[in-house]
Design a binder for these strands. Structure first.
Lengths: 208, 208
DNA sequence: CTCTCATTCAAACCACCGTTTGAACTATAG
DNA sequence: CTATAGTTCAAACGGTGGTTTGAATGAGAG
């Protein structure tokens, strides 16, 4: 029928991404995942060890390209001297939303999954996201502080937190209206709107 | 021992607020709630009818004072003519964070609960929040549009969505670092920082 | 062909879930 | 005191959760 090259392990990760992104971790059963992936229940524990380990593997796989792209852009910017606030925000936001642009329908699934994990009620699970994002986070904080030398460190951290939150919110479509009420926004336009919003807030809205 | 005036119904609502705010709806069992509330399992179905009805009652109770205060401020502002963007943002944010200021430790619990419900993975549950917030929402959107006459309606809606999201994020402390790493921010200062951040974004970051 | 090892499978395990039941308790009204 | 309505209780219901088991299957190596 379709691509037979997809291994059970990959099918589980793909469906887990989709279902965890729709219903959250607690709200999604392994049985729902394995049925949709045409796999046996025991496959999850065979390939990953536990439900949480499946989630961990899915988070790592989904975040990897985003982190790589963020690092790449940061390297590139810093090689050219002191980056501007807008350049830094762009280098942070765009990789998070390009996930949607690059791949088609799967892109939205991945983005929603990432955003959902970032906002999960359980601290354990939010920390999975933090652990993935942490390596880049320190570099962004330092670069933002350098670009906003007049701003207090607390303010820069506050701005970064808001940037992270708004990105996760738009990724997960958490507060979007009921489907049909509004058309799903074009991801490219969304990125530009979000970047403009954040640049203005960083440039004019942080206490010194 | 303590206040014996607390009815079973009130104890259930208080504990539900706390536990749903900590673990989310799916991640919190009725047994955990009833044990903590020193009530029988059947008490939930007797007083509310179901787990979801308990959540609904808790959301309604928690949101009521916020909505009342928002309406009051909106009435007051509109009686004096065209409100500024800052006045409108302040009238939206402050009631959401005053929940923390007014009451002591319980304030944080209530705020976290509200924020958590707004970001719940299940659409059903997010709609509980929307249903409570909706009546005021239309008024805020109209007032913001009037204060930002040069901005496109889509942009105003985009800004409002971001305001809603950032408030819910700070209410729920969703992306806060592990406790102990940073001191919990003073709620008053948080409100001022958030308002300044949003005013700047609305004034300089919305496409026309 | 045979051995080996990775993978898949049906079935079961046990714990916990939300909900229901019917009896026991409480207090107030007649 | 007695009836009555409101509330609490222990116990059980059926269903579903993540996890485990041990046998069956498959392909590749010697």
């Amino acid at each position: 029928m379709e691509a037979p090259a997809e291994s059970t392990r990959e099918r589980l990760l793909n469906i887990a991404e989709q279902r965890f992104g729709e219903g959250g971790y607690e709200g999604t059963s392994l049985r729902a995942i394995t049925v949709a992936a045409a796999a046996n229940i025991a496959a999850v524990n065979y390939h990953f060890g536990s439900k949480e380990a499946l989630l961990r593997a899915a988070v790592t796989r989904a975040m990897a390209p985003v982190n790589i792209e963020r690092r790449r852009r940061l390297d590139q910017l810093e090689a050219k001297g002191q980056p501007t606030v807008e350049q830094l925000i762009r280098a942070f936001i765009e990789p998070g939303l390009d996930v949607i642009l690059r791949r088609g329908e799967r892109g939205r699934v991945v983005a929603r999954f990432i955003g959902r994990v970032a906002f999960d009620p359980s601290r354990r699970i939010r920390e999975l996201y933090s652990a993935e994002a942490d390596p880049v986070e320190a570099r962004y904080l330092a670069a933002l502080q350098a670009a906003l030398s007049q701003a207090a460190p607390d303010s820069v951290a506050f701005g970064y937190l808001n940037m992270l939150g708004l990105l996760a919110m738009h990724q997960s479509q958490a507060l979007s209206r009921a489907p049909g009420t509004e058309e799903v926004e074009d991801p490219g336009r969304l990125a530009e709107n979000l970047i403009a919003f954040l640049v203005a807030a960083f440039d004019h809205g942080l206490r010194s």
